[in-house]
């Protein structure tokens, strides 16, 4: 074999080895990153946090929000924990978010992972309160309603509904969470007197369903149903009442034709 052939072979082998090393290392690295990034679906993020994927990309893991929080609510996740490494989260049963009107955590964030577009703390959506009906004292028939009383958006985020109770003359007072207003601050979870909290904050995507645009809840609209339905007009059922007359979505197939 000519000398340059040997050199060429040598070079090709080296190049292949180098590529193999890079590919192996790169794959391992990507695997690690993917593991970390999808680590835990239960993490509750500070107010204004971007959607999970964007938050993962944007957070620089500096902890300035943690320093900014006057209630020591926020913590950074350590490596080896269930949560993606080094990012802020809170556990409402320990310390909830007390909804500072000036949002110091968001202001401390240098990268915008906590979005400065959040102007009013009551618009933050850190999670959604969910009641365990089986273990809620109020739903069992006791007079508790502590979550309702402690809720910073009481009467909006948590409302009470009275129901007659069997043969007793005393009514039941059911706390109801309204996702339209609930910020997920977790003050209710902190206040709940049961041994394990019967009301908890969970990320929206774990608990919140979606009915789909094609259902028409005719009785929520105090307006005439029209023919000029466009999918873009669809608004959630709670907001339906605010629709301008003549704008209600849905097709009036029941009242059309030769009926």
């Amino acid at each position: 074999m000519a000398e340059h052939d040997v050199a060429r072979r040598d070079f090709l082998v080296k190049a292949a080895q180098g590529t193999a090393m890079a590919a192996t290392g790169g794959l391992l690295w990507v695997y690690l990153l993917k593991q970390e990034a999808r680590a835990h679906p239960f993490a509750l993020r500070p107010p204004g946090a971007l959607a999970e994927k964007d938050f993962n990309a944007a957070c620089i893991k500096c902890g300035q929000c943690v320093v900014g929080c006057p209630y020591h609510t926020l913590k950074l996740s350590g490596s080896g924990s269930d949560l993606p490494i080094g990012m802020p989260f809170f556990e409402p049963r320990e310390i909830p978010c007390y909804l500072c009107p000036d949002i110091p955590c968001m202001k401390a964030c240098p990268t915008g992972a906590l979005s400065p577009e959040l102007k009013n703390i009551n618009d933050s959506r850190m999670g959604l309160a969910v009641i365990d009906l089986e273990n809620c004292l109020s739903w069992k028939g006791l007079r508790c309603e502590i979550c309702h009383r402690e809720c910073p958006l009481k009467g909006k985020a948590i409302t009470l509904e009275t129901h007659p109770r069997g043969i007793s003359k005393h009514a039941m007072f059911y706390p109801i969470v309204n996702s339209e207003y609930c910020t997920g601050c977790g003050i209710c979870e902190k206040a709940c007197p049961t041994t394990e909290a019967a009301i908890r904050i969970l990320p929206h995507k774990l608990v919140q369903g979606k009915i789909g645009d094609h259902y028409r809840l005719g009785w929520t609209f105090d307006t005439e149903i029209t023919q000029d339905f466009k999918p873009s007009d669809v608004i959630g059922p709670g907001e339906g009442k605010t629709l301008a007359p003549g704008k209600a979505p849905g097709q009036d197939y029941l009242n059309s034709g030769d009926l």
Binding site: L33, I60, K61
Partner: peptide, 13 residues
């Protein structure tokens, strides 16, 4: 890898 995975590749490890 930062560009490919959408997270800061070194910062995460």
């Amino acid at each position: 890898l930062s560009a490919l995975t959408g997270v800061a590749a070194f910062e995460w490890v």
